[in-house]
């Protein structure tokens, strides 16, 4: 049984349909990347799994249980946490409070403040400042730490590299293998294709709301990715 299995997912913003019949499955312990151009529907997919976007899926099975009709606030308690696009730290909470609120659902597990600070020591130094006073990279670390505090089995990362300098992106991506070793399954949406192919065991490419390609990174050629990314006519 897959950890997450999405069957025939359509998603809507009002009358506008953003996703068309998406099928996607993730095994426990895997790292899966979703790549695709701007507006392809990558964020919409993550937000649908998290319960933030209305969708009509045949099923979104998590450990064999359909979670497609659950409220967003119930999903994290099931073991799915999200690092949202743009970090979305809470401005009136300090760094440490942002981490603590990540554990609001009180799921049992091994992650706590100490371990987050062990992974990102800079956050310990800056624990008392407002989350929004941090640099972009530090904010991203806080957002990752906040998701880990929920003790999730699956984390959805939306564009970790967005707006960050290459050297900072490397720092952030170095934390992913550690997280994976802890048994956390990773689903990451990424514009930076090279970064995505580096960490992912499998890749999905979205194009205009549909899956245009799936595969294992080493079997994918530049041409096949370009075609799936931009459409075959470009």
């Amino acid at each position: 049984m897959s950890l997450l299995e999405v069957n025939n997912l359509d998603a809507f913003y009002g009358d506008f349909q953003a996703l068309f019949g998406i099928n996607l499955a993730i095994e426990e312990g895997e790292a899966v990347a979703i790549i695709g151009a701007n507006g392809a529907g990558k964020s919409t997919f993550l937000r649908s799994v998290s319960g933030l976007v209305t969708n009509t899926a045949d099923a979104i099975n998590y450990r064999g249980m359909d979670i497609s009709h659950r409220a967003a606030s119930d999903i994290v308690g099931q073991g799915i946490a999200m690092v949202p696009e743009g970090r979305k730290l809470f401005p009136s909470l300090s760094v440490e409070e942002n981490l603590l609120i990540g554990g609001y659902s009180q799921r049992a597990g091994a992650w706590n403040l100490e371990r987050i600070y062990g992974m990102f020591p800079i956050l310990k130094e800056r624990r008392d400042v407002a989350g929004t006073a941090l640099s972009g990279g530090e904010q991203q670390m806080t957002a990752i730490g906040r998701a880990l505090m929920a003790n999730p089995e699956l984390i959805l990362f939306d564009e970790l590299s967005l707006g960050l300098a290459p050297i900072v992106i490397n720092d952030i991506y170095e934390s992913l293998p550690t997280i994976k070793q802890e048994g956390v399954t990773l689903l990451l949406v990424e514009q930076d294709i090279n970064k995505a192919l580096e960490v992912a065991d499998r890749v999905y490419c979205f194009q205009e709301g549909r899956v245009s390609l799936t595969g294992v990174p080493r079997n994918l050629t530049k041409d096949s990715i370009a075609a799936a990314y931009f459409g075959s006519d470009k």
Binding site: S50, G51, L52, A71, A72, S73, D74, V76, G77, A81, M82, P84, K88, F90, P91, S92, L93, I101, G102, Y104, S105, R146, A150
Partner: peptide, 10 residues
Amino acid sequence: DDAVTAQLMG
């Protein structure tokens, strides 16, 4: 601050 992101915290 942000009721939508708060839902992601449970």
